[in-house]
């Protein structure tokens, strides 16, 4: 099967500016995912650059904009993709080369929410106990793979990547607030009490729409907002 592509290309070593390249590739029957097709394209043109690793949707390397929507190439079926398949780097982040973007800002925001359990009481010799029900509170939060599909589809993050934490970071913030082992809820809310860090989210839901792990940052953000309100009351 032949497949047509339109791919965003930019190599700062040779290109004055980015351009869209038309190309075609002959797929084997075993090439089921978009990543398989890109790997095959790369055999023909080894200058095509993109990140990839696990090829099963858990490492978060190959997030890109596919026919206008952010997603992971390795779990996107080639069957059913409208052709030519238009592939661009994740929007809103500086492009380093081809489909490779600079994710510094994204990780900076993640780190800014203190993404680790804070608990100053000395740990017991066994586990810090947690009931199965309390543990369930973390489902839908801890599974994030930091692919940035969500944050780079969020208009508020595009405009203020340095000030707005963004959906991935806020989902992580709530993951720690929701953990019964974490004792820093107040401190975490203080950290987000700011016109930009949290409140730039206008519940547009783009993030939910694109998350390849079916997580719901908007809901987590809503919960944080609720806690803020409760705290004042």
């Amino acid at each position: 099967m032949k497949m047509q592509f339109k791919i965003y290309r930019y190599n700062p070593d040779v290109d004055a500016k980015p351009y869209m390249q038309d190309c075609e590739v002959e797929l084997e029957p075993t090439d089921k995912k978009l990543l398989d097709a890109l790997v095959r394209l790369k055999v023909v043109d080894d200058t095509l650059s993109f990140r990839r690793s696990c090829r099963e949707g858990v490492c978060g390397s190959d997030a890109m904009n596919i026919n206008g929507k952010n997603g992971l190439a390795c779990v996107t079926d080639v069957a059913g993709l409208k052709q030519p398949v238009e592939i661009r780097p994740l929007p809103g982040l500086p492009v380093i080369r081809d489909l490779i973007v600079d994710m510094t800002q994204f990780f900076k925001q993640y780190n800014s929410i203190k993404p680790y359990v804070i608990n100053d009481t000395p740990p017991p010799s066994h586990e810090r106990l947690q009931s199965p029900k309390d543990r369930e509170e973390l489902d839908g939060l801890y599974e994030c793979i930091l692919c940035a599909c969500c944050s780079t589809s969020c208009p508020s993050f595009w405009w203020n990547p340095d000030k707005f934490v963004g959906p991935a970071g806020l989902l992580a913030a709530y993951r720690f607030i929701a953990d019964t082992r974490d004792t820093a809820t107040n401190e975490r809310l203080d950290n987000l009490e700011d016109p930009y860090r949290l409140f730039r989210c206008h519940s547009i839901m783009n993030c939910v729409d694109v998350c390849p792990k079916h997580l719901n940052p908007t809901k987590a953000i809503g919960k944080i907002k609720e806690l803020m309100v409760k705290r004042i009351a």
Binding site: R51, S53, C54, V58, C59, G60, S61, I145, L146
Partner: peptide
């Protein structure tokens, strides 16, 4: 790769 993209994941 970024640490959380290592294959332990």
């Amino acid at each position: 790769v970024f640490p959380t993209r290592s294959h332990t994941v």
